[in-house]
Amino acid sequence: MLGFLRARAIEGLETVSGDCYSRSISLDGMHGWFSVRPGDSDALALTLHFPDPQAQAQIVARIRRLLDLDTNLAPIHRHLSADPLMARLIASRPGLRVPGAWDGFELAVRAVLGQQITVTAAIRLAGKLVAQYGQPLSCMGAPAGLSHVFPEPGRMAGADLANLGMPRSRGRTLSGVAQALLDDPQLFAPKASLEHSLSALRALWGVGDWTAHYVALRQFREADAFPAADVGLLNALAALEGGPVSASQLLARAEAWRPWRGYAAQHLWTTL
């Protein structure tokens, strides 16, 4: 989990120092920050600074979703381990969880920025976005490196985001996602099923199957979401089993992993 967060930490918004993950947060117009690090035994230690004490329970719940702390891995592992490959991967990383998201809009923006480019390039773009459109963090005592909160959709909806150095079509998609959230504040709220989640996302201009499955997995916590055309998944399976793998072959292979294909995907991604 920490390695995943470290590789995707957005400058100004998040830091990973040693075994500690920190980030700025914005909720109902108020700013704060939190840090999470290993505590005693198997526990995590949370440091939270936020001006409204009544928001603490909501913030802690969102952090637990971000870190996937409420999932019981035992039944998932039993099911996936029927596949010898998955059994081997689970044995090597028995505590692996699926990272979630602090905020659905932020995750959708990250996913769109990551379309057809490397993680490093996408995070660099995200840093530019935060610096230009995010508000300066108005909270004392924040860890070094936390300077802004993630941009509000109202700042992005009418902006020409292509000036950040991305294709104009991608900037249009980001602006469209921001406007869609303004039109429907429940856009990233939990849906009734995976198909409902995917349909809501695919209806957005420029959001295809890969992005929809990725957001459904990490924001809607749809454990069976599975972006079968993901290059990383294809490369991981090919490297593990020797020989090229097509998206259709991967999708057929993943049928045995239902309803936990998202956890299988995380194990494959982590081998890269």
Rank of each mutant, 00 (worst) to 15 (best):
Gly134His: 13
Pro151Tyr: 12
Met140His: 15
Cys139Glu: 12
Ala144Trp: 01
Trp102Gln: 00
Val130Cys: 05
Ala126Val: 01
Pro153Thr: 11
Val109Glu: 00
Ala122Arg: 10
Gln116Thr: 11
Thr118Phe: 02
Val119Gln: 08
Val109Met: 10
Ala144Gly: 11
Pro151Val: 08
Val119Arg: 11
Ile123Tyr: 08
Trp102Thr: 01
Pro143Phe: 10
Gly100Arg: 06
Arg124Cys: 02
Gly141Gln: 13
Pro143Cys: 07
Pro151Gln: 10
Gln135Leu: 15
Tyr133Pro: 03
Gly104Pro: 05
Leu129Met: 12
Ile117His: 05
Arg124Ser: 14
Gly134Ala: 12
Thr120Asp: 09
Gly141Cys: 11
Ser138Phe: 00
Leu137Pro: 11
Arg110Asn: 06
Ala111Trp: 01
Ala144Pro: 04
Cys139Phe: 06
Ser138Glu: 15
Ala122Leu: 05
Arg124Gly: 09
Gly100Pro: 02
Glu106Thr: 00
Gly100Tyr: 02
Pro151Asn: 09
Trp102Ser: 01
Val119His: 08
Ala121Glu: 07
Val119Glu: 08
Tyr133Gln: 04
Pro153Lys: 09
Val109Ile: 13
Asp103Lys: 02
Pro143Glu: 03
Glu152Asp: 14
Ala108Thr: 03
Lys128Leu: 15
Leu125Gly: 01
Tyr133Asn: 03
Leu129Glu: 12
Gly154Tyr: 00
Cys139Val: 15
Phe150Asn: 05
Met140Val: 14
Gln116Ser: 14
Gly154Ala: 13
Gln115Met: 07
Ala111His: 01
Gln132Phe: 01
Pro153Cys: 08
Met140Lys: 14
Pro143Asp: 04
Ala131Phe: 02
Thr120Arg: 15
Glu106Tyr: 01
Phe105Lys: 01
Pro136Trp: 13
Ser147Met: 09
Ala121His: 10
Gln132Glu: 15
Gly134Phe: 13
